[in-house]
Nucleic acid binder design. Structure first.
Lengths: 216, 216
DNA sequence: CAAAAAACTAATAGAGCTATTAAATAGATT
DNA sequence: AATCTATTTAATAGCTCTATTAGTTTTTTG
């Protein structure tokens, strides 16, 4: 019990802090509040983590590692391009669903504390150089074959991230404005996951007619 | 000069506050800082706006009005559906380009201060009932004609907003990670505006082959 | 020009927050 | 049991922030 408890207090602070930071962001969460929720003295938070900032960075870095790690998974699949793409989109969506508040935290903290981007950049060093280039070369092949329309790799990535992320970012807003229940929102999420795949893959089809008819 | 200056001080506070709130959010901006930037006494901020919260809401409501107002513009256009859609997407993107920090402010403040959503909801009352339904009925007609694939109206709206918004939200992150200059970013924005239109419109084409080949 | 109103400021109350310190308690070790 | 180490706490220094108050300066107005 005691050995457990010793490990438990530091862990409890970490977990509570994570929850509160994700809920309300760094600025709106105080060490006092964290301690109150854990049920310990406020000084304990500083005993284990020295500063609020260090506590945050411990959590932030962990989340970045987790997030990036999954993308660095080697694709064991030897599938056609579009099927691989579909799996990637779905996997990305799944990660978000498991960490629905992560986009908020990332955008919010990286915007209000640009210096935190250094951790991110350092952590992401190899990310563009592997994931990006892998996707890039596969994409170029498909475009040359004419099986998908011309598109910049960065645009495709941005579009996938953007479509997948929006509902998690807008979740409180959508719920409030539509008066939707949690269950309804979950249903919407499921539909949205499929819709995003269709959206992306359909949007990659060669243009032809479109050029004449719609885009000036 | 004096008459000008009197009107000027309140105005200066409003403008400076707007800039700082957009830059760093509500929590990270103090009335002391606003006053310092304006070059006036900190009590002035409270003289004109009583509380920091009221000052924020004055700005927030103005921004919402502006943002919603543009969408409520009657579409004088009597164009084919897809061309109208293209114009809407482009107009939406333009508004964002003129207010690049607005998405950050909206997502950030509505998430950390859910009570602010009441202002938004009240302000948006007729928005869904006009814009949404107008798009909805036009969309259903096109779907029945078979000229575009089946899609929920809310999904289309979310996709447009999401694709248009992402770069403005991710701006600091993208700049930092890619080391891109401001000019390069502007170029990217221009490309992205076109890409989003192509993306959306292309993604609305009927499915057929896709169903068999790619989506299980 | 005198009185009234408006604009402005210095000072500060009062609250909350981070971080530290010094002391107390509990657990492990010899 | 005595000592040492790790954990925990109370107290508080020191800071920053919001908001108010009471008084001063400036502008307007009769």
């Amino acid at each position: 019990m005691t050995i457990n408890k010793e490990a438990t207090n530091e862990q409890a602070i970490l977990e509570t802090a994570e929850r509160l930071f994700l809920e309300k962001g760094f600025a709106m969460t105080s060490t006092t509040e964290i301690a109150k929720e854990v049920g310990c003295n406020q000084a304990m938070v500083h005993y284990y983590f020295r500063t609020k900032d260090k506590l945050f960075e411990a959590i932030f870095e962990k989340k970045i590692k987790m997030f990036v790690g999954i993308f660095l998974q080697t694709d064991e699949e030897n599938l056609p391009f579009l099927q691989k793409l579909q799996l990637k989109i779905e996997r990305h969506f799944d990660i978000l669903q498991e960490n629905p508040r992560l986009p908020f935290l990332f955008f919010n903290e990286l915007t209000t504390h640009p210096e935190r981007m250094d951790v991110l950049k350092q952590r992401l060093q190899e990310f563009p150089k592997t994931v990006f280039h892998r996707l890039n070369s596969e994409l170029k092949i498909e475009i040359e074959k004419g099986s998908i329309r011309p598109i910049e790799t960065i645009d495709l990535i941005l579009s996938i991230v953007s479509l997948n992320v929006i509902l998690f970012l807008a979740c409180p807003i959508v719920k409030k404005i539509t008066g939707m229940s949690d269950d309804d929102f979950q249903i919407m999420l499921q539909r949205r996951k499929k819709e995003n795949v269709i959206m992306i893959i359909n949007s990659l089809r060669p243009l032809e007619i479109l050029n004449e008819k719609c885009i000036k």
